[in-house]
């Protein structure tokens, strides 16, 4: 490969994943702990299930909030050249994706509530064969990136 993708996402993206992890942990924690807590309080239900629930929740918290977001951030690299968009991602299964500029049908930037909180946006490129996403750019950067891709796409256009 002539060029290894080297650009990283905004460092804030790790924060987004962390927040998502916290919300997810809260949700699973309630599902795991609450029923057994109620049962243990009201009946003679063994409290071992409660502790298992707490332990699992703590493990999920550790993995999805403390450990993974940073690793995810370091394991998503991309590059945008005149001819292609290259994305390299994944921890165990590493996927090396190439989207030729001439195949891109259109691009957009989008952000949900969490991304908006961090003033981030993700850039999506659509081809006839599917969509690729570069999540977590600063809003201004994302817009710039989208426009740059659109300009490059204009130069070379091919049919399906």
């Amino acid at each position: 490969m002539r060029q290894e993708p080297d650009k990283l996402l905004s460092k804030k993206m790790a924060g987004v994943w962390r927040l998502r992890g916290i919300l997810g942990t809260l949700f699973t924690g309630i599902l795991l702990v609450l029923p057994s807590a109620i049962l243990t309080n009201l009946t003679a239900f063994p409290d071992i299930f409660l502790w298992i629930g707490v332990a699992v929740t703590a493990a999920i918290f550790l993995v999805f909030v403390a450990i993974l977001p940073h690793i995810w951030w370091t394991h998503f690299k991309y590059a945008i050249t005149d001819d292609e968009i290259i994305i390299k991602r994944g921890i165990f299964i590493v996927e090396h994706t190439v989207v030729p500029m001439i195949k891109i049908q259109y691009t957009d930037t989008s952000y949900g509530p969490i991304l908006r909180l961090f003033k981030l946006a993700s850039v999506k490129v659509m081809t006839a064969g599917g969509t690729e996403e570069i999540p977590g750019q600063l809003l201004a950067e994302a817009t710039e990136m989208r426009d740059r891709i659109t300009d490059l796409v204009k130069l070379v256009k091919e049919n399906v």
Binding site: F92, V94, E95, K103, T127, G129, G130
Partner: peptide, 15 residues
């Protein structure tokens, strides 16, 4: 010229 997205993936054993 019909290929839209090209992917090369590898798992740890393959690597």
């Amino acid at each position: 010229r019909k290929i839209q997205i090209a992917i090369c993936s590898s798992n740890p054993f393959q690597r």
